[in-house]
């Protein structure tokens, strides 16, 4: 029985090297903008899975069927994949902006931050935007639902003013249901008076 298995294994190895021509391919992990290194598992047809989890770590399948594990340089990756990496759409992002108490007017700090959000949005040709308004726990449920939606609507007006088509912006108000900083009811908390802007 053992001998039989050996024969089978040998036959597989022979097939692996005997090299029916295959379509060459190259798989590589590239670092994210924040430096994070990902993980991929490459399984050649009829071969073993191989985990690749290093910066520019790669698996190359050659035309003769041989499989090589290599580490590419940043220059090599740019030369081969620069054009295609340039075509990646902007990464999804989330921004949080804060409001004055009981109002749909941004704090002075968030008005400054808004310019950064606008600058990001200008680089996205067709953004999908969700604006979610929130409040602190001061006041009743209905009052806060209305206020949170007013904040989201106000933000939408600003985004439309920037030239973003209205139909690309979804707005919702969550009232005091989703606190950033948990508090008792009826507590004034600046960090809970906010909108989240999710951009894709």
């Amino acid at each position: 029985m053992v001998r039989h298995l050996w024969v089978v294994a040998a036959a597989f190895i022979a097939a692996g090297c005997a090299c029916a021509p295959v379509t060459p391919a190259l798989f590589a992990v590239v670092p994210a903008a924040d430096g994070h290194i990902g993980r991929i598992v490459v399984t050649p047809n009829g071969g073993e899975p191989k985990l690749i989890d290093t910066k520019y770590g790669a698996e190359r399948i050659r035309a003769d069927g041989k499989v090589e594990n290599v580490t590419l340089t940043e220059t090599e990756v740019q030369a081969t994949f620069g054009t295609v990496m340039d075509a990646l759409p902007g990464r999804p992002a989330t921004y949080t902006l804060y409001f004055l108490e009981g109002k749909d007017e941004l704090t002075p700090e968030s008005k400054v931050e808004l310019d950064r959000v606008f600058a990001d949005l200008r680089h996205r040709p067709l953004p999908d935007i969700a604006v979610i308004g929130h409040t602190d726990t001061r006041g009743g449920l209905e009052y806060n639902d209305t206020l949170s939606r007013a904040r989201a609507e106000r933000m939408r007006e600003m985004l439309v003013g920037l030239g973003i088509p209205e139909e690309r912006i979804m707005v919702a108000g969550r009232g005091k249901r989703e606190l950033l900083v948990p508090t008792e009811d009826n507590v004034s908390e600046a960090r809970n008076r906010r909108v989240e802007i999710n951009v894709r």
Binding site: P31, R39, I40
Partner: peptide, 22 residues
């Protein structure tokens, strides 16, 4: 055509050579 890749995150690149060139 010659392999399958499972993605565990997050950024990666793949090249498949143009078969006409082989």
């Amino acid at each position: 055509p010659s392999a399958i890749m499972g993605v565990r995150g997050t950024e990666f690149v793949v090249q498949v050579d143009d078969t006409k060139k082989n």
